[in-house]
Design a protein around this nucleic acid. Structure first.
Lengths: 144, 144
DNA sequence: ATAAATGCAAAGCATTTGCAGTAAA
DNA sequence: TTTACTGCAAATGCTTTGCATTTAT
């Protein structure tokens, strides 16, 4: 991660923005690696500060932006209160529990069809589906 | 709108919350009626204040929350910067221009399939698809 | 009457920004 | 050495809240 062995360029047009491998970023990346909880900036800050006393919010945001721009992270707009980050940048969708707010990945099996004549002259480049429902834990609850 | 002729109750369980038909709310509803621009609270505030000098932001938000809870409005989480409101509460999806940010409705023709065994034990109650692409106007642009 | 809504100002959060110091490359 | 990053504090911007007053019912 962060401009791997093939130094420079995270993807396409990098106008002089080669990322530096700072210990803070590595700590954030390590926390995010394989993480499927869709953490917010604060979640990340709290988790990483434990081992990285001096970590600041500005650094967390800075890193999140840099990694998102580099295509290593995906910024989710699912939660209206805050942005959440997903280290899985492959095409996938999400299940959101309307009771507890938990967000779970749906990595395959989803098919979306939008007839070309329905696109209102848009050139469609991608899509994202949010499924609303109740997670197993919340289904077992009496009320709510 | 707002507890029509069949007085009281906007839908199900209304614990003593019958909405009042204030001129401010009617002005907001009138602005929203048939509006497909997915306006934000500020867009609404600006538009309605022209004719309603004394309108305040608190009232706009208050009304938006009340109408959303009453099921008359739908709050969109598409835009990470701010919440947007949609007077169309029927099941539909959205096209978002990645260049200019314009949001357009897709009211039919979309089919989404999530095999039951992929739902990870969730009880699915609904879904919303965001299509990303370029709107006609932006396709005609050279750069960007 | 009375329960709810308005409007103002202050408060609350998430996120951004400016900048001087620090550290990758 | 050069360019980017860190960390702090201040600033922004959207949304919420408290409260006294007004208003729909």
């Amino acid at each position: 991660m962060i401009a791997g062995s093939e130094h420079k360029r995270a993807s396409k047009k990098n106008k002089g923005s080669r990322l530096k491998r700072t210990p803070q970023r590595l700590a954030i990346l390590q926390f995010l690696d394989g993480n499927t909880s869709h953490p917010s900036a604060e979640d990340i800050y709290r988790a990483v500060s434990k081992q990285y006393q001096s970590m600041s919010f500005a650094t967390v945001y800075n890193t999140l932006h840099a990694l998102t721009k580099a295509g290593v992270l995906r910024e989710l707009t699912i939660d209206p209160e805050r942005r959440r980050y997903d280290p899985d940048t492959s095409c996938h969708h999400h299940l959101i529990c309307i009771n507890c707010g938990r967000i779970v990945d749906v990595s395959g099996g989803v098919t979306v069809d939008l007839p070309s004549d329905m696109a209102r002259d848009f050139t469609i480049l991608g899509n994202h589906v949010e499924f609303y429902g109740r997670c197993p834990a919340c289904q077992k609850q009496k009320n709510a």
